[in-house]
Each structure stands twice: as structure tokens, then as C-alpha cells.
Design a protein around this nucleic acid. Structure first.
Lengths: 122, 122
DNA sequence: ACAATAGGGGAAAATTTTATCCCTATTTGA
DNA sequence: TCAAATAGGGATAAAATTTTCCCCTATTGT
């Protein structure tokens, strides 16, 4: 596992939530788990742009930060189900607000983001 | 400027907001600008852990995404003031909710984050 | 025997982000 | 005359994250 060389700041609430939510796929993982897609393979289907590997890594981090919990069923082939912890559930309204904001401003955001990407590659 | 090789997905609201808020200091920048710290040097004092350089870069991105606007006063020494755009202002309640969540769970979050950092470097 | 299924992980490469260092310019004050 | 304040940028290095590639487990069904 990668060992950080720069110790993160944990001064304020924003630092703390940043530390547990920073990760390209984490918010989506929480969202889809909340929607009932509990198994790793389902999550992979919902997030096809991420590789299995990253999803595993980010799921593990979410678990270590106690936002989700993992249940392993002792069957073959293996079955695993994730679920939100109580703490994780309290994030859902916030994630929902984030998604709503993005949806509401969808057209505008898409245009400014694309404009910037184009000017980058001029 | 860095040119991305992987084109970001812009499918849903979460993708879009992620694209404009992803950046280590962006949320704090928006927050402090909202609090009335408008000038680059003030923002640097509020966020001493970031270098001038990164703040400039992230401020520019926020500006290109139309979350903040920049006013340059033609004086010497130079004076610059940022302010939230109407769109930027609509993010404040969400950022506030993020910070509140972090504050409310401060003790717990700090402990799980530190536990994970330690186990990393075992 | 062997593929399919469902889950997972190590190592290294690639990508992206952030940090460091060194420059520019102008005016005020010591 | 020289430092401080104020804002900014280029080049490069370092750090962090994500992706790619290949490997493993064990059982069931063909």
C-alpha cells in the first residue's frame, strides 16, 4: 500500500470530510450502495469506467473510514455485500445535494468544462 | 498547462460537480472568498499549507468554471479581488453542509483517519 | 480436464496533481 | 539603495492516484 509522505491536515470539518471522500469513485460508490447495489460486481457494472482494482481499493478505504461495512458470505463462488454504516447514511443527503446541484446546472457546467478542456489542448 | 490524456466523464450531476470541485484547495477557496477574504494574499494567509502557485492555478480553474470572478484594479502594487458568481454562491449551502458534517463527526473521523494512516506505515 | 463464476491482490506503468525554485514588474518606506 | 508588499508565471521535481497486467482462491457444471 502506498505510504503518504505528506501528512494531511485535519484542522477543520472540511479537511476531515475531504480526507474520507477524496477519491475519484468514492462518492459514486456510496451513492450506488445506498441505491441497493451492494455487491462488488454490481458496483462495477454501475461504474464501468473504473477498473475493478480501484473500486476494491476505494471500497476498502471507505470501509476503514467506517462509512461502509462489508459482509462476506462463506459460499462458493464467494459473495460479498457492502452496506452503509450509520455514519455513511448521514452522508447521503449531502451527496444527494451535490448531485442535484450538478443536475440543475448540467447544461451550463458541461459547456464550461468542455470549453476549458478544449482551450487546454488548443 | 497540463493536457489531460483521459477524457473525463460528464454523464451525471455527480460527474459534473466533481469536475469543478475536484482540487485539493478549491472548496476552501470558495469558502474563504464567501467569508470575505477576497484578495490572493489574504487567501494565502488563510490557507498557509498551499503554495501560492497552486492557489493561483486553482483560482484560475474556478474562474474558468465560472464559480468565481476576478477583478483586477489597475493600481501599483497590484490589487486583485475575487468574488463568488451567482453560480458560485449556490454552492455555499452545500459546502457548509460538508463542513458541518465534518465538524459534527470530528472526533470520530480524526480517529479513523489516523488509525488508517498508522496502519499504512505499520 | 477445464472453463466459468465471484472475489481479490502485487508490481509497475501511466496519469494527474501538487510542490519547489526562480524569475518578472512597480511603488512605498526605511 | 535596498527590502517589503503585491500579483503572477515557467520549468521541473515530487507526490499521489489511478490504470494496466498478471496472478491467485475454490467449487460447480460440462
Amino acid at each position: 500500500m502506498y505510504e503518504r509522505k505528506i501528512i494531511p491536515n485535519l484542522n477543520c470539518g472540511l479537511d476531515l470530510i475531504g480526507e474520507v471522500l477524496y477519491g475519484k469513485w468514492k462518492i459514486r460508490l456510496l451513492w450506488f450502495i445506498n441505491e441497493g447495489h451492494l455487491r462488488p460486481s454490481e458496483l462495477q457494472r454501475k461504474i464501468p469506467d473504473a477498473t475493478r482494482r480501484v473500486l476494491n481499493i476505494q471500497l476498502k478505504e471507505l470501509e476503514e473510514h467506517d462509512l461502509i461495512s462489508k459482509k462476506i458470505y462463506p459460499v462458493v463462488p464467494p459473495k460479498v455485500e457492502y452496506s452503509l454504516t450509520e455514519l455513511g447514511k448521514t452522508l447521503i443527503p449531502i451527496i444527494s445535494a451535490l448531485g442535484d446541484w450538478g443536475d440543475k446546472n448540467e447544461a451550463f457546467l458541461r459547456s464550461v468544462i468542455l470549453k476549458r478542456l478544449k482551450s487546454e489542448s488548443q
